[in-house]
């Protein structure tokens, strides 16, 4: 049972003209068993939030707190956060030349669980995870994400999600670039992960389509570095119909 608490988070990035504030006070609590969806226009800061929680060095936290079960996440290194139970499925998964998927998965699993997985069951687990997202087993011999299509990279993220089995998963546009069948396959993967125990999920998306497969308990509208409105899954339907105009045109700080 885990709780991720983000309190009044302010985040900047370094630009040529000095620091630029991207997140302007984000407060969000994700409890075990809950699925949260974040929707918002391009450039509003959704990925920034995801990366900041994961600890990407590009983002400077200027104020606010992030805790996982009361532990200070911001004080942890990137790998410590992962070992504490946080997982980020990235919008743009990174290619790592010369490192095979199979080696990568085993190294990650070993790091997170603190011991090397038993060889026999491990190979079976990897094969099962790959079969489930319809990733050819031959991908295990390929280099991490190298030459993968957009959709293949996303499936690979889900394979990792299933094998690493974190407490809280942040999925940044995992549905983008997926064909109709792949969307169903990936959604099923996320739902399996959720059923695996009390998991928290933060789903960043542009499309309500995925929310038909992965039903959110909460929907947050993200605009200009803040959460502009919160509601249940019905809010997603409203956004689909009306877009973000109401939020973008409204004066800053006009919250629901």
């Amino acid at each position: 049972m885990s709780t991720l608490e983000i309190r009044d988070l302010h985040v900047s990035v370094d630009t040529e003209d000095g620091p630029k504030e991207i997140l302007k006070g984000v407060t969000l609590t994700i409890r075990a068993g809950e699925t949260h969806a974040i929707m918002g226009p391009n450039g509003s800061g959704k990925s920034t939030l995801a990366y900041s929680v994961a600890g990407h060095p590009k983002y400077q936290i200027t104020s606010g707190t992030v805790t996982l079960d009361g532990q200070d996440v911001l004080a942890m290194s990137v790998d410590e956060r992962a070992r504490a139970g946080l997982f980020l499925a990235m919008q743009y998964p990174v290619e790592v030349p010369g490192v095979s998927v199979s080696n990568f998965l085993r190294t990650a699993k070993t790091a997170v669980s603190g011991e090397a997985p038993k060889l026999r069951t491990w190979i079976k687990d990897v094969n099962t995870a790959m079969d489930r997202v319809k990733m050819e087993r031959s991908f295990a011999q390929r280099n991490v994400n190298e030459g993968f299509s957009g959709g293949e990279k996303k499936r690979h993220e889900i394979v990792q999600l299933e094998l690493i089995d974190p407490a809280i998963a942040v999925l940044d546009e995992t549905d983008s670039g997926l064909d109709i069948d792949a969307l169903r396959i990936v959604s099923a993967g996320v739902n399996r992960f959720k059923e695996n125990g009390d998991k928290g999920v933060l789903l960043i998306t542009h499309y309500t389509r995925i929310l038909r497969y992965i039903v959110p308990d909460f929907v947050h509208v993200f605009v200009d570095g803040r959460i502009a409105e919160e509601g249940g899954s019905e809010l997603a339907e409203k956004l689909e119909a009306e877009g973000y105009a109401a939020y973008v045109d409204a004066p800053a700080g006009a919250q629901a």
């Binding site: 994961a54 997982f87 998964p93």
Partner: peptide, 10 residues
């Protein structure tokens, strides 16, 4: 970053 985000120490 990608590798570390999967728990692998620096």
């Amino acid at each position: 970053f990608y590798l570390q985000s999967r728990g692998v120490p620096e």
